[in-house]
Simulated scan of single mutants.
Amino acid sequence: MIDALIAGRLYGIAEQRTGHAGSSYVTCKVKAMTDDGDGIICNVIAFNDVVREALLGLEDGASVSLSGALTPKVWTDKQGNARPALDLVAHSILTLSQSASE
């Protein structure tokens, strides 16, 4: 796990879900650009109430910065190429309209 700050654009919209124990959380995807101009998708999950509400208030394509626990991963596409992926448990958020944290 890495303590990270990522910045990018919301890819799709955030979705609220409920866990087995009845706890609420929000999931979304953020597309961050790399140095070579390619994008990398970061899978985000947020349990914090303030961060959840902020994510739910954003539209597809909204600029966002998130900090939290980052786990790098690798997946294989249909052509057999290894691709990077990121999973982030978001603790804080900064958008153009607001900033919020735990």
Score class of each variant (00 low, 15 high):
G8E: 07
S23H: 11
A90R: 01
N48P: 00
K78D: 13
L10P: 04
W75M: 03
I93W: 05
V50I: 13
D3E: 15
E53V: 02
S97C: 04
G57S: 15
L94S: 12
K73P: 03
S97Q: 12
D35F: 08
A14V: 03
S101Q: 13
L88C: 04
T71P: 00
H91K: 14
H91G: 13
G8F: 03
A90W: 03
L96D: 15
L10A: 00
A90E: 05
I13P: 00
L58E: 07
I41W: 00
T95L: 06
R83Q: 10
A85D: 11
S99H: 10
G57P: 01
E102R: 13
G68H: 02
A14Y: 03
E59M: 07
A4L: 09
I6S: 05
V64S: 00
I45W: 04
G57D: 10
L94Y: 07
S101C: 09
L88R: 04
A46V: 08
D49T: 11
F47S: 06
V30D: 00
S97L: 07
V74T: 13
I41L: 06
A46D: 03
N48V: 09
C42T: 15
T34D: 11
C28S: 07
D35P: 10
L56K: 02
E15F: 05
L5H: 11
A4P: 05
D36N: 13
G68A: 05
R83C: 07
V26Q: 03
N43H: 13
V74M: 09
G8T: 09
M1L: 12
L56R: 01
G37I: 07
A82R: 14
V26F: 00
G57Q: 08
L94T: 11
N48E: 15
F47C: 05
D36K: 11
A82Y: 09
S63N: 12
G61R: 08
M33N: 11
G39Y: 07
S23L: 04
A21L: 15
G19C: 03
T27W: 01
M1A: 14
S65G: 12
L10K: 01
